[in-house]
Amino acid sequence: MNAATLAGLSGAALIGLGLYGVLTHPHPLRKLLSFNVLGSGVFLMFGIIARKGAAAGLAADPVPQALVITGIVIAFSATALAVALLLRLFAVDRSATLRPDATIERNDRSDA
């Protein structure tokens, strides 16, 4: 087994791990972290596709690699926006819960 296949298999496992985290963690920051693990697994899949496309004297196909570079930057900006939203939610609500009924309960309590 060569390095590319190994990286591809790691990517598959990372997607599974990240997905598990997104599904099971109640805290949004942990979901975000898991989503980033999932995303890096997807990037690794691009990596193996690039490596298998080695041709014309290049060690890997540059097109998927360039897409991954763009992807990493976009993933970061989306993460930053999500963190800002989350911090704002915590500042307003004093809680980071995503349960839809949580805000209503809190409002009822402050009304009473």
């Binding site: 296949t5 591809g8 298999l9 990517g11 598959a12 496992a13 997607i15 599974g16 899949m45 193996i48 596709i49 298998k52 496309g53 080695a54 041709a55 014309a56 290049l58 890997a60 196909d61 540059p62 097109v63």
Partner: peptide
């Protein structure tokens, strides 16, 4: 996904 990785054509499609 792992099955897809192991089944990938080598050399694959490329724009290199």
């Amino acid at each position: 996904l792992a099955a897809v990785v192991l089944d990938m054509p080598d050399p694959g499609a490329t724009l290199a």
